[in-house]
């Protein structure tokens, strides 16, 4: 299992569109994927779950990956956060 820490960089936060991008990307991998915010943890492959984080700009999240392709999954998801989901920062 690996854990990565990321920050929400886009101004609008994790609203519907970024949330669905995360879920769509995560679902391409077999590895289990959980997102944690202040101890509250959800399944990163569930769109409703990701949206319940209601993560705003600058929110810090922990990403947990567990499975054979965890490295690839972590890299792909991290890139999404770094790019700010292609939105205004």
């Amino acid at each position: 299992m690996i854990t990565r820490e990321v920050t929400v960089t886009n101004r609008a936060g994790l609203h519907t569109r970024p949330a669905s991008m995360i879920v769509r990307t995560a679902s391409q991998f077999d590895a289990d994927f959980y997102i944690e915010k202040d101890g509250y943890e959800i399944n990163g492959k569930s769109i409703i779950g990701v949206m319940t984080l209601a993560a705003e700009q600058d929110a810090k999240l922990k990403l947990h990956f567990d499975g054979e392709d965890e490295e690839e999954a972590a890299t792909a998801i991290e890139e999404l956060f770094e790019s700010g989901f292609g939105e205004v920062k």
């Binding site: 299992m1 289990d32 943890e41 567990d66």
Partner: peptide, 10 residues
Amino acid sequence: MPHQKKTFRK
């Protein structure tokens, strides 16, 4: 190691 679920409280 399987993923341990986190707990949180107010």
